[in-house]
Structure formats: structure tokens, C-alpha cells
Design a protein around this nucleic acid. Structure first.
Length: 170
DNA sequence: TTAGTGATATCC
DNA sequence: GATATCACTAAA
């Protein structure tokens, strides 16, 4: 089953634990497909979240975060790494879920590199196109939570909040 | 632990 | 126009 707007049109904190275990499918023009199961995600939610890019308000860069659910937010980090988020929740409400790693490729930039996702995907939809989609094959991993990574600048509260969702290994 | 890398935001 | 910052990775 392919996930559409309905799946993402809920609060990021409700979507995130369900997104873990789903499969990203990347389709190329020659018909080949790459598949990778999502093993870890992080929630960035609201202007009050100091770690969220939208915490500094609405700008050209963060505009997509305020957009409709099911959009992809891709941005370049440290000049060489593309990071991929999926937008969730209501329009005008900045929230997104960072795809942090897959079962095979650990690390958000490794995943986008493998799936060949770059800035051209920014502000496009994760459903209803022939390049990228997310599938549900019914697999439901056990989830544990942990603080988010790489946001030491966000202050003690936001640094420690457990908005990282990880598929438990067995 | 540190270098590499460039878009973005924020300050002149 | 200039500068500081950054949701990372690979190499050492």
C-alpha cells in the first residue's frame, strides 16, 4: 500500500512512530527501483521548537515546512549533504519528520546519496509521482525513543526531548 | 578530533 | 557586500 496525503495529514508526533518500518521506493527513468526500509526518524515541530528550522520564523527556506502534508523538504547541510524531511500536519503549521537512517544505510546524508535525492526534490510531493513514494508492507517494528542528534545549540529542553524514533533491533 | 563544503540568514 | 552558522561524514 502506498502512503498518501491522508497518512501524513496528522500531527508529526503521531506520524513519526508509524513512519518507522515503512519503505522508501525511489524509481528512476529507466524503470529501476531502489527500496530501503526506514529505521529511524526525528520530529521537528513548531516555531517554538528551537531545533526546528522554522524556529526563526517563516523564510524562503522554511516556507515548505508550512506547506501541506506529504511534501518533501530537502536542504543542503555543511555544504555537501542533502537531508530529507517529510512534511506532516496542518498547513501553516511548521512540522516535519527527518528521515535519519534506513536499515542498510545509516546516516541521513548516506540515505539521500544512495537514493539520489537532492535539492530538486525540495517542495515536491512524496506521493502521486513516479520518482519517489513510501510503501507500507504491513511490517510493524518495535519502537524506542531517544533525544535528537546534532542540535546542541537548541537549549537544554529541546536538546533532551525524545523526538527521535528508532526501530528496535532484534 | 578535524577538515571539507556551500546555501542561508543576519549583519553591515 | 561580508561573515557566522550548520538536523553531516570520512579519515585519522
Amino acid at each position: 500500500m502506498i502512503l498518501t496525503e491522508k497518512f501524513f495529514h496528522r500531527d508529526a508526533l503521531d506520524v513519526a512512530p508509524e513512519l518507522v518500518g515503512k519503505i522508501i521506493v525511489r524509481r528512476f527513468e529507466d524503470g529501476t527501483e531502489l527500496r530501503e526500509r526506514i529505521a529511524e526518524v526525528e520530529v521537528y515541530r513548531g516555531e517554538e521548537d528551537k531545533a526546528c528550522h522554522a524556529s526563526k520564523g517563516r523564510t524562503k527556506r522554511t516556507e515548505v515546512l508550512y506547506g501541506e502534508s506529504g511534501l518533501i523538504y530537502v536542504y543542503l547541510c555543511y555544504g555537501m549533504h542533502w537531508l530529507m524531511n517529510v512534511i506532516t500536519g496542518e498547513k501553516e503549521q511548521p512540522q516535519g519528520i527527518l528521515i535519519r537512517c534506513g536499515e542498510v544505510h545509516n546516516g541521513p546524508a548516506k540515505l539521500t546519496k544512495y537514493l539520489q535525492i537532492d535539492g530538486s526534490f525540495n517542495s515536491t510531493k512524496i506521493y502521486g509521482n513516479d520518482k519517489i513514494r513510501i510503501e507500507d508492507d504491513g511490517f510493524k517494528p518495535e519502537i524506542r525513543t531517544a533525544p535528537r542528534v546534532g542540535i546542541d545549540y537548541a537549549g537544554e529542553y529541546w536538546r533532551n526531548i525524545k523526538w527521535r524514533y528508532i526501530a528496535e533491533k532484534r
